[in-house]
Design a protein around this nucleic acid. Structure first.
Length: 877
DNA sequence: CTTGAGACGTA
DNA sequence: CGTACGTCTCAAGT
């Protein structure tokens, strides 16, 4: 503890501590909406405020390095030369961190050609001479030499940036076995890899300490190095010059000329508004009160905007609706609460003018025309509201904005797109929410009109952020798609309970039989659904060869079981696989069955914001992963049937849409020719790759190029390809080489697209949908390479998603516009399922073919396969 | 009752 | 050490 009578000077090495924070904090949690990384800033400031609070310094400064160049590199150009280049995304955070410190009135010291630690050393020397207790905070071990009775070092422990270890002379002696001023001697002998200062070979801390204790000083040791025996003695004599150089370089300067001395560093009041402003820009919220608390300041008054009282809504009757709407020109925000699938209350906001009414027949009559008109309407998460309106018989038109979709398009990786979340992120305010866990909530939730009001304001903020191309995706793809999805969800798909329950029973009996048999094989009962118990059986009791490691042991997944089976066949393995298959199917069937509603149909929910690429996802139940690969599993699809009043199901799917997009984006002439030739794609590619006629392409050849083609889209490696095809890695490598020799433009495109994405920070689909990839510049190889594969895939998968959405909403609109009853029921990424009304087959098929085939103008045709049948399985051919 | 891991279904 | 999803079960936490 410091003597309370003396002032305390705290000097901090900003660079080294921020750098540690940079690697300690996951960047994905610290990226602002405009892609500014803030992990180093946040980590440093977090530690910094903790320090101020704990140490209560009276005087304070933070020093930074200016560049790599210093008097040390002048003397020894190799100094720190082995360090990897400072990542750009770290360097970019330093000026912002310095801005934060400036707002906190903390002096920032730098000097050209001088390292931060030299500044610390100088201030420490001046401080202790002038009667201060000095705290040096640094992540560089060289600062240990500064420790004395007046100077204490705070050094990050291995646990992380937030833990600082306190070194006074006693602690240094305990940890390193020498007095602080001797530490540089040790370091000179041992060397410092991170600074590229080689030491004496075979000499570590132990030997160095022993020598220094024996000879007293480094000079004495070097003088009498002849007395040291053995290999290390020789090493020492051979490296005396290195040691002397190391010692010169690790001596910190204590006489740097600085514009400010300790007395000038007295803690000053912070610039409260300045701190608020920059923290808002960096999207730091929890840090703000901590800064005020640590610095002993009163938190400043909230922003005027944050304290604005919520406007109250006027309750109006059906009779007043028309007058209010007539007055409300331009966009109106709408929020409809839904109960039992029907509208309940409706709130409207036009600027600060809020009205609200209960949905009843009179209200519906008064407002239906406006809702169905082109008058522009803004909603947040419109789909459930659109569904309620459609159920009530009112079609919504004029959907001009959905802030939920906009929030997603802007940051597709962000999981929470709720209005409350957007209000927080883009307005910096808190949306009043009732606590649903309390019977009588202590806080009142916002009313529908107030939610609409927030929606207008969030929309205004989002419009300022959303780039033009993304705004077009919103208006021209997502909003029309939303309306189509609402109708698809309402329509649902007819599913036969009888077929499912019969099948389920059959599978249940089979699974039980298999389980019994497997128990007799291993001589005991075991829960076949428990990976943990299976590991005991497989790897301990049966002593089968170990498989790939997982967090909890060894994998028992299907691929691993197949691997074991190859070399150590065991009847239990086969039974386990069969059991898995049967129970998995049964489980899917059961969940499907319980999802059948009284109308005998299953109504999934499409989550339009459910992916990062632009695809839809499907939940409750997921109808996008109904089995199809095996004959038996397709029986599930035969339970999906044409509904009452309809004639047949139509399925339509894009064939090889992702490869076609690849051909288009890469402009590869070979691939484009493949699609224009009419030849089977994989046969064509196989012929080129293996140098044979298309008719001579064997099924093994076709399988290989097919895997390669699909793998390309996912960023496949030779390793992955060899695993997938169960071939040698060298053969996979060879296959890739041959493939790229014929289709080189594909490789060129993929490379260029990742490089371009790294430059701009995001990828873009053909239609302008963006996906940010901050990790492409990450120094962490795993993160970076994962990002590279995802970035490679995103424009391809995303463009396919765009194309399907365009086709989908146009089909939906055409069917309605032509007065047809036929309707789209399902979307499974590249496939649509349509329920066709009697007599409408020809018209429906034409619409589907035209709209799917014409959804995009690519340099290759979009091929559409159409099937027809009474159930989904039958229609799939 | 919630959460994470493992497994596995789809495009 | 191939992208994008959702759901189930088990097991261990709350």
């Amino acid at each position: 503890m410091t003597d309370s009578a003396k002032p305390t000077l705290m000097v901090v090495d900003g660079h080294s501590l921020a750098y540690r924070a940079f690697f300690a904090l996951p960047v994905e949690n610290f990226t602002t909406k405009d892609n500014q990384h803030t992990n180093a800033i946040y980590g440093f400031l977090s530690m910094f405020v903790n320090l101020i609070k704990a140490e209560q310094p009276t005087h304070l400064a933070v020093a930074f390095d200016t560049s790599r160049h210093s008097f040390r590199t002048d003397e020894y150009p190799e100094y720190k030369a082995t360090r990897s280049e400072t990542p750009n995304e770290f360097r970019g955070q330093i000026p912002l961190l310095q801005d934060c410190l400036a707002a906190m009135s903390v002096p920032v010291l730098t000097k050209e050609g001088i390292e931060a630690d030299d500044i610390l050393a100088t201030l420490a020397a001046q401080g202790s001479a002038q009667g201060y207790d000095v705290l040096v905070v640094s992540g560089d071990r060289d600062t240990i030499q500064l420790v004395n009775d007046e100077v204490t070092l705070l050094y990050p422990s291995v646990q992380g940036v937030s833990q600082l270890k306190r070194y006074d002379p006693i602690a240094v002696q305990e940890r390193y076995g020498v007095r602080p001023e001797q530490y540089p001697d040790i370091a000179a002998l041992v060397g410092e890899t991170s600074d590229n200062l080689p030491g004496v070979p075979k000499v570590g801390e132990k030997t160095a300490v022993k020598w220094l204790t024996q000879f007293g000083t480094l000079d004495e040791l070097l003088e009498r190095s002849g007395e040291i025996k053995g290999v290390v003695g020789g090493n020492l004599r051979d490296h005396i010059d290195d040691v002397r150089r190391n010692r010169r370089l690790n001596r910190l300067l204590q006489d740097v000329e600085l514009p400010l001395g300790p007395a000038d560093l007295a803690v000053r009041p912070i610039d409260a508004q300045g701190v608020r402003d920059i923290f808002a820009r960096l999207e730091f919220r929890t840090l703000l009160p901590r800064v005020f608390e640590a610095t002993g300041e009163d938190a400043p008054a909230e922003d005027a905007a944050a304290t604005v009282a919520l406007p109250d809504a006027a309750e109006i009757g059906a009779a007043d609706v028309a007058a209010w709407l007539a007055k409300a020109t331009g966009e109106v925000a709408v929020e409809i609460t839904v109960a039992a699938g029907l509208p309940q209350r409706i709130g409207l906001a036009h600027g600060d003018d809020l009205v609200e009414l209960t949905w009843d027949p009179a209200a519906q009559a008064a407002i239906a025309d406006w809702l169905s008109s082109d008058a522009p309407k803004i909603l947040h998460d419109a789909k459930p509201q659109v569904k309620a309106l459609h159920t009530a018989g009112v079609r919504l038109n004029g959907l001009a904005y959905d802030s939920n979709l906009a929030g997603w398009l802007l940051r597709p990786s962000y999981p929470d797109k709720s209005l409350a979340d957007l209000v927080d992120r883009y307005l910096g305010e808190k949306l009043p929410e009732a606590d649903p866990s309390q019977l009588v909530p202590e806080t009142e939730g916002a009313t529908p009109a107030q939610l609409a009001w927030f929606t207008t304001r969030v929309t205004a903020a989002l419009r300022g952020e959303v780039p033009e191309s993304v705004d077009r995706v919103l208006r021209e793809i997502e909003l029309p798609t939303l309306v189509a999805l609402a109708d698809m969800e309402l329509a649902g798909v007819a599913v036969s309970h009888d077929i499912l329950s019969g099948f389920s029973q059959e599978l249940g009996e089979r699974a039980n039989g298999i389980a019994e048999e497997s128990y007799s094989v291993i001589g005991r009962e075991v829960n076949l659904g428990s990976p943990k118990q299976l590991q005991e059986v497989l790897f301990e009791e049966l002593d089968l060869p170990k498989t790939r490691k997982t967090k909890t042991g060894y994998s028992t997944d299907a691929a691993s079981l197949a691997d074991i089976q190859e070399k150590n066949p065991h009847p239990f393995l086969e039974l386990l696989s069969q059991h898995r298959e049967a129970t998995k199917l049964r489980q899917i069937i059961e969940s499907l069955d319980t999802a059948i509603r009284p109308d005998h149909r299953v109504h999934t929910t499409y989550v339009q914001t459910g992916s990062q690429t632009g695809r839809l996802s499907s939940t409750d139940p997921n109808l996008q992963n109904i089995p199809v690969r095996t004959e038996e599993s397709r029986r599930i699809r035969s339970a999906f049937q044409v509904g009452e009043g309809y004639e047949t199901l139509l399925t339509a799917d894009y064939s090889q849409i992702e490869m076609r997009i690849m051909a288009h984006l890469s402009g590869d002439e070979g691939l484009i020719e493949a699609f224009n030739s009419g030849e089977d794609l994989h046969r064509f590619v196989g012929a080129r790759v293996f140098g044979v006629e298309p008719s001579e392409v064997t099924s093994a050849m076709r399988t290989k190029v097919k895997a390669m083609s699909y793998g390309l889209v996912y960023g496949l490696s030779a390793f992955g390809l060899s695993k997938q095809l169960r071939i040698e890695q060298s053969e996979a490598k060879h296959l890739m080489v041959e493939y790229f020799a014929r289709f080189g433009a594909v490789r060129d495109y993929l490379r260029a697209s990742v490089i371009a994405a790294r430059e701009v920070g995001y990828t873009e689909t053909i239609f302008g949908r963006r996906r940010p990839f901050p990790d492409l510049a990450s120094p962490n190889r795993v993160l970076r390479e994962n990002a590279e594969r995802a970035a490679l895939n995103a424009p391809i998968q995303g463009s396919a998603a765009d194309i399907m959405k365009i086709a989908l909403f146009r089909i939906h609109e055409d069917l309605l516009a032509q007065g047809l009853t036929s309707r789209v029921l399902l979307q499974i990424h590249d496939e649509l399922v349509v329920e066709v009304a009697p007599g409408e087959w020809d018209a429906t098929e034409r619409i589907v073919r035209d709209r799917m085939g014409g959804a995009a103008d690519l340099s290759v045709p979009l091929d559409v396969q159409v099937g027809q049948g009474a159930d989904w399985n039958e229609a799939a051919h």
